[in-house]
């Protein structure tokens, strides 16, 4: 039956609604050490013995050299801005339904230890963000930390 024929025979098309709620629990594995360090207010990264790249989130092997990364390097509390963007509308995590932090710009930071990571910026005016500016981590109170990205509330610009 073609769409045209069907249209003639059935004046009102019906759509069914299927609301679904499917909870997942994913293991963090090797990344658990990183998540536990966040709870303690520290940022650590795995380091490749071949190329020396530090990666966040950590990986058990180097994505480029297929060697085990057993060395963990403390990345310090400061870094420089690589890129930024700001969303102009509230955005929900489509897996959990929770409202995400959309009021602070989302940035990529190159840390003192060499790894790069995503975060939120304390400066909410994106025109004041400049590539290369120095930033410092501002942490959530220790009892609230869960090993999540938002354990670091935001990155605050530091005067140089």
């Amino acid at each position: 039956m073609t769409a045209e024929q069907k249209k003639e025979e059935q004046p009102e098309f019906i759509q069914f609604r299927y609301p679904r709620e499917v909870p997942y629990e994913h293991a963090l594995g090797y990344q658990s050490k990183f998540a536990n360090a966040l709870k303690q207010g520290r940022i650590i990264a795995t380091k490749c013995p071949v190329c020396g790249r530090c990666t966040i989130p950590p990986r058990i092997v180097c994505p480029f050299h297929h060697v085990k990364q057993t060395e963990w390097v403390d990345q310090g509390q400061r870094g420089r801005l690589i890129s930024a963007f700001k969303i102009n509308f509230p955005m929900f995590n489509s897996r959990t339904g929770e409202l995400q932090n959309w009021e602070n710009p989302i940035i990529a930071v190159e840390l003192e230890g060499g790894a790069r990571m995503d975060g939120w910026c304390a400066e909410t005016d994106p025109s004041k963000l400049k590539t290369g500016m120095l930033l410092e981590a501002v942490w959530r109170p220790e009892e609230e930390r869960q090993g999540r990205a938002d354990d670091i509330l935001h990155w605050k610009p530091v005067e140089e």
């Binding site: 995590n93 989302i106 990529a108 938002d150």
Partner: peptide, 23 residues
């Protein structure tokens, strides 16, 4: 890039290309 980490940010095709275009 990583379900545990990037999944926690309000990332979407919109924000992916906002970041790319900013840079």
């Amino acid at each position: 890039a990583n379900e545990y980490w990037t999944g926690q940010f309000p990332m979407s095709p919109i924000t992916n290309f906002a970041r790319r275009t900013y840079a």
